[in-house]
Design a protein around this nucleic acid. Structure first.
Lengths: 332, 332
DNA sequence: AATTTGTAGGAAAGCGCTTTCCACTCTAGG
DNA sequence: CCTAGAGTGGAAAGCGCTTTCCTACAAATT
């Protein structure tokens, strides 16, 4: 990547580097109009494109925002990413994206730190026990003036956060189902290391217990469509089709719930006729599904925007709490 | 963002800047082991994190790859993004993401050029008539040594490309449906400015014509779920429910097709009992849908990977062609 | 007319690295 | 024993900008 430099522009315009910089790349000092125009013309003719790397070095700020997600193809994360992106663009920031599959968050954060992103947004639900090296890396990053925002839980000291009321959602959803007269429950969840998975599950059990009920089964699989499918098949295998009939199955998230419904369907069980299923998140593509999935809505894009907003604001670090809203559809 | 610098590390280790650089940031010259270790220890103690901006400036290469999409929350694009990301990470490149809503691709490209990304991948289907300023910007970018890869069609001179056989897919799918005995067709498409939308439509008509058939209706709406829904309602309004019954509706892409099916369902028409519907892409969340959507599969993640591969390879610019594979499910 | 202000553009230092030379030591060959 | 050659670490010149001073000059003040 070679390109026209600012000093070439300055020479062409017959002015100094300083003046050219002031004209082209924003400064509180505005050179006289007839000079400014000469510079602008020169830049135009030569096809000048400012070098953001050099600017970053000189200004010691990059205008970059880093976003760490598990899986960008998962609608949960891509919706958040959309929100983050929108907010970032409003501030003319660029988005550095890392999809980690949950494993190498550390690498991603290190790379972002190296690129001196102004902020890092961690959207992946944290694992139950956070990798101490991750923690150290992020802490160092913060010490150097970087801002970090976590989505889901506020698990990092000094970081901003958009916290999601997973426990309340689990409890609220379950409660609603109980009040709807359901008594026989099962839970299909994601890996316990994922805090969000664990919290939704905890809320589920809390509501059940309060009502004096117990779950007839619980299965844990991957937090994705495939996992939901397998969990459904596993449930059928464990309890048998007859016991599954009449059950209300709460599933850790929508993607998984959709997979589960498919699993039940392939086994000949229909939702909601044979059993009820409910999920979490209200991912955008839900509206096309039939049966409509009963779920707890979290405004994903807005959550992304809020996270970016905290990341980019110059005020104190904020923590914003998001409570889900139960959306009742046909599936339950 | 302030942080420990290389010269601090060098001083701490009692060596020169040059040596410290050679030890820490990869060079063909490897200083003696006992020196190297001193440097590594110093870096460790001080918590050194290389400044990628400064490295980029000195090396005149950034290790950044830019990806431009319309809408990152659309499974089509997020799947591609996933592939690109995976390939980029394998090369330890970072991904700069821009979601443009199709409007300000120019801004995105300019920003990428400013950040001196090593390559730019344009995943948004190009508009029918390309903005000449976009063309100019990309051409300049290429002239400066940047590599660009387009996904969909090869619409830029000198750029690599992963071309998608949209026309063939449209024709092949329609052909298959005709051979299945269907005779009454309609087309629900996306905006004609989108090349992929236009090409799929062209393929559809070509196959129809060859069979001596004509379409009973065609509607154009947004290339998303909402658009599909509205197109379906529009079709019903235009032809009336009775005429829609027995129709085979080919829809511009899966997302839109899903929306259309929902639209028909809300009007009391069931797929495939009342009418058939088919789409394009085979987006990942399709497997959970019922009825299973008949579609033309394009391996989205692989397309993303291939694009990144072309972008990062040092060989000549490649153009890779992808042909869809018809996937027949219940919906048609 | 003499002085102070205010404003303009320019010189140059510096941001944190990489890399080219350069001076030097050590080994091997004559 | 001397010298060419191979390899080492270090000095310093950039990479392309921003920004702090500095100087020059015009306008405003007495």
């Amino acid at each position: 990547m070679s390109a026209v430099t600012l000093s070439q522009v300055a020479r062409e315009a017959g002015v100094s580097l300083a003046t050219a910089s002031r004209v082209l790349n924003g400064s509180d000092r505005r050179p006289a109009e007839h000079i400014a125009e000469r510079v602008r013309n020169a830049a135009e003719t030569l096809g000048y494109v400012a070098n953001a790397q050099a600017q970053a070095l000189a200004r010691s700020t990059t205008g970059l925002v880093g976003l760490v997600v598990h899986d960008i193809a998962d609608p949960y994360f891509s919706s958040i990413a959309k929100g983050v992106q929108r907010r970032a663009r409003a501030d003319r920031r660029q988005l550095l994206l890392a999809a980690t599959d949950g494993t190498d968050q550390l690498d991603a954060v290190a790379a972002f730190a190296a690129h001196r992103t102004d902020a890092i947004i961690m959207a992946g639900s944290r694992r139950r026990e956070i990798d101490p090296r991750l923690l150290a890396e992020l802490t160092r990053y913060q010490k150097n003036g970087g801002r970090v925002v976590t989505i889901g839980q506020a698990w990092l000291e000094g970081a901003g956060s958009v916290t999601i009321d997973n426990r309340g959602a689990g409890a609220g959803l379950t409660d609603m189902l109980i009040r709807a007269g359901r008594t026989r429950f099962a839970f299909l969840g994601g890996p316990e290391e994922l805090a969000s998975a664990a919290e939704r599950r905890a809320g589920f059990y809390w509501a059940l217990e309060r009502a004096g009920l117990t779950a007839e089964a619980e299965l844990t699989e991957g937090f994705n469509s495939q996992g939901g499918y397998e969990a459904a098949r596993g449930l059928l295998e464990r309890l048998g089709p007859d016991a599954v009939r009449g059950l209300t199955v709460v599933v850790g998230n929508d993607v998984m719930a959709l997979g589960a419904i498919a699993g039940f369907r392939h086994a000949g069980l229909l939702v909601p006729d044979d059993l009820w299923v409910a999920g979490f998140d209200d991912i955008p593509n839900l509206r096309d599904f039939s049966p409509g999935l009963t779920t707890v809505r979290f405004p994903l894009e807005q959550i992304g925007e809020a996270a970016a907003d905290i990341a980019l604001s110059h005020d104190e670090v904020r923590i914003q709490h998001v409570v889900g809203e139960i959306v009742r559809r046909e599936s339950a």
